Computed example of a mutant assay.
Amino acid sequence: MIRSVLSLKPKAGQSQELVRFFEARKIPERALASPGCLGVEIQNLLPDGEEVLVTALWASVESYRTWLCSAGRHEDGVQMLPLLAEEGGVVGPARLYEVARLATHQNTSVSR
């Protein structure tokens, strides 16, 4: 399994707006519909939301690469730029980590 980690720096006071952007464009749902996506999380850095961290669990590197090429993903990055502290580029791919060990409780879920 692979964990993708995307760190985004929103403009001051815009972290909740950035989270709403992900919700409005249904990015987590679209990722979950992509073959091999096992889960998606969007997190705000406490206490003030200076960073939004987007992580996802993938069956393989290939499944993550499929997501990178999916319809609308490039447009998501372009439309997200005005919410970010440093414009001037494209939102690139996330860092990838191989999941060496995973421990979970069966039949439990956590939501905000």
Rank of each mutant, 00 (worst) to 15 (best):
Q79T: 11
G89W: 02
R73L: 00
L102Q: 15
W67C: 03
L57N: 04
L102D: 14
V78N: 01
P47C: 02
L81Q: 11
G89V: 02
T66H: 10
L68M: 12
L81T: 10
A59W: 09
G89I: 02
V61H: 11
L68A: 06
H105I: 14
D76W: 13
V78E: 13
D48F: 15
L53P: 05
E98T: 13
R65N: 10
A71W: 06
T104V: 14
L84C: 01
A71S: 11
S70W: 08
Q79P: 00
A59G: 13
G77F: 05
L46D: 07
E62I: 01
W58Q: 10
Y97F: 15
E75L: 10
A100F: 12
V90D: 10
R101G: 09
R101A: 13
V54G: 00
D48Q: 15
A56N: 02
Q43W: 12
A56C: 10
E62F: 00
L46P: 00
L68F: 00
E62H: 10
W67S: 06
Q79Y: 04
E86L: 13
L84H: 01
E50W: 06
Y64R: 06
E86G: 08
E87S: 14
L102M: 15
V61I: 07
G72R: 08
V78W: 04
V90F: 05
V90C: 01
E50N: 14
V91C: 05
A103M: 09
G88I: 03
E98P: 04
A94M: 07
S63V: 07
L45W: 03
W58C: 05
P93M: 15
L102C: 09
A103H: 10
L45S: 15
G49Y: 02
G88W: 04
P47I: 03
L83E: 04
R73C: 00
R101M: 07
A59L: 11
T104H: 08
G77C: 03
C69F: 06
I42W: 04
V78M: 06
W58R: 06
P47K: 01
E51A: 14
V54M: 06
R95N: 04
L53R: 15
N44A: 14
V52N: 06
S63P: 09
R65C: 01
P82L: 09
S63N: 07
D76M: 11
V99H: 07
Y64V: 04
W58V: 06
T55S: 15
C69A: 08
E50A: 11
A94G: 12
E87W: 02
A94L: 07
M80E: 09
V90Y: 07
G88S: 01
H105E: 15
E98S: 12
D48R: 14
R95A: 12
R73H: 15
P93I: 10
R101I: 09
H105F: 12
